[in-house]
Every structure is written in structure tokens, then in C-alpha cells.
Write a protein that binds this DNA or RNA. Structure first.
Length: 499
RNA sequence: GGCGCAUUGGUGUAGUCGGCUAACACGCUGCCCUCUCAAGGCAGAGAUCACGGGUUCGAGUCCCGUAUGCGCUACCA
């Protein structure tokens, strides 16, 4: 039997990293087993679902490189009629019943508290889950009242005795007593719309899903879903639940509290290389059998296994206070690692996109200046963290309009007043060099520093800030060659004004 | 409240059948390289494996209990 898995996000917000990881694991599993990877949009909550959210999710999956769905995208809302029919079929088969109890309004704010209170109260009164008086209403009577237009909800008839059990691929054997599961509502009263547990099951059956891979927050509810599979007479798929990704204080990651760090598109917008973030994501809750953490997509597919997923929740370690740690340090490190080691040919288009977005791209980079571009990028990528750095710290390589870092100016230019005269002098001796390259500019600078009686380091560091605006960067003589004779001389003279 | 799941250095993880002087990566500290560095090289600090008890010659690994965290418990998804 070929494997069929699906990623089933609900479009009620952006694609957060936990969901993205679920998508990734589904995708990896499908690609490894030669199975099908499907996308189903769970848009049954019309109030909360938005097109914008859907677009953001789709874009996120594309960015991660896992949007090659093997079949048409399924929209759950389009299947509502099927879900309803399935529930009514269960009523006919006496596996579910109509509940004519008037719908109780629920305040959305304190649901968790309300549930706990109700449970506590129920426990005190010894209430049991099978006490609904409509549970044993005859089908004739039920049909009659429904036919007369009386509003009803449909609930599943859960057996009084026994227990539900299944083997989770990640969490192992799971068991739950029926007495702990109430007769869950399948269809809402009033508009008779289907509820989540019914919809997932009917759709998963319809889509022929063989493995349900999703967040651990669904682990306990799986028992309810299995009950629905059974009632419907359908085979139950295999389940694999994934540990959750938590915030540094071990709280659930949420948009409201944690903002954009949890949104996948943030990583795209802040200069992450998709492969790097994907690689990082794969390591949250899973580890390859060997110690190799940096993996190509092919290696990841080959090494992945659901059995290798572990059970404890992972913490996404970031700091809201420190800008340098705006997201997990390992994610940042991995991005830098990818930027400095990936094939230049793969990096180039990403840098181009960044330069274009910032108005720094020039047509000649595609033609005459192509070798220069490649050399430059290869040189400066060594100490960059994100693609944004190419247009930020690296701006001076692509434009004459760049800013001088205050700290760099203070450290390398302002602290030695003689630089006011030395810099123009250096500019002159640099200009006289022929040919102009790293070696000759070094010779010129060292000769000049000797004749001026200052240490070469003084001029080298001053030059770095003069030519790039930065305090750090590649070897200075490489920079001279890259920036070129004329621009170098001009910037050295201009920097004299900053001393 | 009930039920379920988890718990290895700051973080991500390894540790299959009990033999660990607890491994790797990020981060951190120091040194080296050097013209700088958020790069590279080297070294180091950091974990009584949540706690308590038990089984055993021997437990991070097995059993029981406790604590903490998380999840579910809804006519939300």
C-alpha cells in the first residue's frame, strides 16, 4: 500500500514554525517512502479563516521547498455536505443520535476554565457521559422531531464499557477508557455544520490517508477520531504525533505573545536561506542516526524516520531583549554556515533578489561584471549571518552611497588625528600603482606606512572603515582589489573628512 | 478536577539489549592566526542524567512514587 500523508493547516493565521515542521516531516516521510504528499486546507471555521492566511501558508511551504503536492489541494469547507451525510448515516445506523437539547452559548474567553469547572462539578455529582436523555430516543421519534423542524445536534454514541487503544509511532501504546470520552458532537445544532473531529476523519478516509503525522496536541483526541473511524466502518490509519515546539519559558508559542519570531515568513523576510531553515527545523524533535547535522535534502530524506522522532517538547530559544538573538542562535548559525559554504551558484540568485529589492542590483552584474560579482560575494559571505547582510553591512561593495558605522569611525578613524593627512597621502600612492590588485595595493600601503612612520595596521584599519563603513570585514587588500583603484582613492579622501 | 505525555549541561540532541570516566552541535570563556572580526584553528568551563525509593555486582537506561512542565478534556481547529 502506498503511503499517503497530508499536511492540514487551518488558515486562521500565518504559518508558524511548529506547523511548518509538521509539514516538513510529512513531506520527508512521503518522499522517503515514495508516497504521496497532500495538502488539505481546514477552513471550516468561516469566522476565523482568511485568504491572507491561506496565501501566507502556501507561500511558506513554497519557500521551504515542500509545495510539490502530489494531488489537488483539498478545501475542507467544500466537503461539509459529505461530512453531514456521514453523520446522518451514523444516526440511521444507531451509532449516533440527535440531541435536541437547546444549544448552550459559550463565552470564548475562558473556555479552559469553564471546562475544568464543569468537570469538577460533574465529578462531584457523579455525572456520567451517557446520561443524555436523547441517547435512547427511537429513530422514528428522532426523525419526526427533526422533520418538524426542531433544532438538533448529532452526537456519537460512545460505548458504555471498554477502552480505546492504538499504537502511536512516536509515543507508543495509547489507551483511554470510554468512560472518559463523552458522546462527542459531530454536527452543530442550528446550521448542522460538521465539527473538527468528524471532518478530519471523513476527509482522511476520503483522501485515503495512511499515516496521520501531526502535533502532539492531537494525541488524546485521536481516541475520539478512532471511534468515528470505527463507527463509519473505515480502516484506521497509523498515527505519529510530534512533540511541540515551545517558547523559552516553556509556554506554547503564540502570535499574540511572541510576535513574528514564530512566523515562517519572518525568516524569509529577514534573509534566511530556505535550505538552512529547513535543516534547522528538521532538527527540532528529530535527529539523524549519525552525528551529521548539516544535511542536503537528499540526505535528510534518506535519514529521516518517524521512529527517530523523540517525545519531549523542544524549546525554541530566542530572546526578545537581545537583537542579536532575535531568533534561535543555532538557526542563525546554521544560516551563516549555509551562506558561507553553499555552492556560489545557488547563493547568487538569493543575493541578487536581495540586491534588487534594495535597489543595488546593476544590469552589468549579469554580463561584464559577473566575475567581479562572484568574487565579491565569495569574499564577503564568509562572515555574514543572513542574506540581508549583503545589502546592509555589504552595501559599500555595491554602491557609493553607504553609511559609516559610528563605532567603526570612532575606533578606526577618529582616534588618530594624523589620519587626516595620511589618508589622502595613501590615496595618492594607491592611485599610482600599476596594475591594481591585492598584492600591489598591499605593497603600496606598506611602503607608504613606512615612509610616514606609522604602523601598517593603523592604515589598514582606517582603510577598512573608509572603504566599507565597517569595522570588520575580509582581508583589507582583497577589499582594495574588489572596490577598485578609483573608488578606493575617492573613499580614502572622503574618509579624511571624518577624522 | 480528570485523563494523557514528557523530564540528559543555557539551548537542540546522542546514549538500541542496564557496564558512562555521560557523547555531538549551537552558545559561552580563553588562546592562536592576523590588518579587523560576529570568520578560521586550538583549548576549556558547564550535567550529582527532575527528585525520592526499589530491583541489580552495577541504572541516564528497568519498576514504583513525588514534583514540575505541557497537552487534551468545547455544539474551537
Amino acid at each position: 500500500m502506498t503511503v499517503r500523508v497530508r499536511f492540514a493547516p487551518s488558515p486562521t493565521g500565518y504559518l508558524h514554525i511548529g506547523a511548518a515542521r509538521s509539514a516538513l516531516f510529512n513531506w520527508l516521510f512521503a518522499r522517503q517512502t515514495g508516497g504521496k504528499f497532500l495538502l488539505r486546507v481546514e477552513d471550516t471555521d468561516a469566522q476565523r479563516s482568511t485568504d491572507e492566511s491561506l496565501r501566507s501558508i502556501i507561500a511558506g511551504l513554497e519557500w521551504l521547498g515542500i509545495s510539490d503536492y502530489d494531488e489537488e489541494v483539498v478545501f475542507q469547507s467544500a466537503n461539509a455536505e459529505k461530512h453531514r451525510a456521514a453523520a446522518l448515516r451514523l444516526v440511521e445506523a444507531d451509532k449516533a443520535y440527535r440531541d435536541f437539547t437547546p444549544k448552550a452559548e459559550r463565552a470564548d474567553t475562558n473556555v479552559k476554565q469553564e471546562i475544568a469547572d464543569r468537570a469538577r462539578k460533574g465529578a462531584n455529582e457523579g455525572a456520567d457521559h451517557r446520561s443524555n436523555s436523547f441517547r435512547d430516543l427511537s429513530l422514528e421519534e428522532s426523525n419526526r422531531r427533526a422533520g418538524a423542524g426542531e433544532p438538533f445536534a448529532v452526537r456519537l454514541k460512545v460505548a458504555r464499557e471498554g477502552k480505546s487503544s492504538f499504537e502511536d509511532i512516536v509515543y507508543g501504546p495509547q489507551e483511554r477508557d470510554y468512560s472518559e470520552i463523552e458522546d462527542l458532537v459531530l454536527l452543530r445544532s442550528g446550521d448542522v455544520s460538521p465539527l473538527y473531529n468528524l471532518s478530519v476523519v471523513v476527509d482522511d478516509i476520503e483522501m485515503g490517508i495512511t499515516h496521520v503525522i501531526r502535533g502532539q496536541d492531537h494525541l488524546t483526541n485521536t481516541h475520539k477520531q478512532i471511534l468515528i473511524y470505527d463507527a463509519l466502518g473505515a480502516g484506521v490509519p497509523r498515527f505519529a504525533h510530534l512533540p511541540l515546539i515551545l517558547a523559552p519559558n516553556k509556554a506554547k508559542l503564540s502570535k499574540r505573545k511572541h510576535g513574528e519570531v514564530v512566523s515562517l515568513t519572518t525568516y524569509r523576510d529577514r534573509g534566511f536561506v530556505p535550505a538552512a531553515f529547513r535543516n534547522y527545523l528538521a532538527l527540532l524533535g528529530w535527529a539523524p542516526p549519525d552525528d551529521q547535522e548539516i544535511m542536503s535534502l537528499e540526505e535528510m530524506i534518506r535519514k529521516f524516520s518517524l521512529e527517530g522522532v523523540h517525545r519531549s517538547n523542544a524549546i525554541f530559544n530566542f530572546s526578545e531583549l537581545d537583537a542579536r538573538q532575535w531568533t534561535d542562535q543555532k538557526a542563525l548559525w546554521m544560516n551563516a554556515e549555509y551562506i558561507r559554504t553553499m555552492p556560489l551558484a545557488e547563493l547568487l540568485p538569493m543575493v541578487r533578489a536581495e540586491l534588487e529589492a534594495e535597489g543595488l542590483w546593476k544590469a552589468e552584474y549579469e554580463t561584464d561584471a559577473r566575475p567581479w560579482l562572484e568574487k565579491t560575494i565569495d569574499l564577503i559571505r564568509q562572515r555574514f549571518m543572513t542574506l540581508k547582510d549583503f545589502s546592509g553591512q555589504g552595501r559599500a561593495y555595491f554602491s557609493d552611497e553607504f553609511e559609516y558605522d559610528d563605532a567603526a569611525v570612532a575606533k578606526n578613524l577618529k582616534k588618530e588625528t594624523r589620519l587626516k593627512e595620511l589618508l589622502p597621502g595613501l590615496a595618492a600612492s594607491i592611485e599610482a600603482v600599476e596594475p591594481f590588485n591585492a598584492e600591489t595595493s598591499e605593497g603600496a600601503l606598506r611602503a607608504f606606512s613606512e615612509s610616514a612612520g606609522v604602523k601598517a595596521g593603523l592604515l589598514i584599519n582606517a582603510s577598512r572603515t573608509a572603504l566599507t563603513g565597517q569595522a570588520v570585514g575580509p582581508s583589507m587588500f582583497e577589499i582594495f582589489e574588489i572596490i577598485g583603484r578609483e573608488r578606493s582613492a575617492r573613499r580614502l579622501r572622503a574618509a579624511a573628512q571624518l577624522v
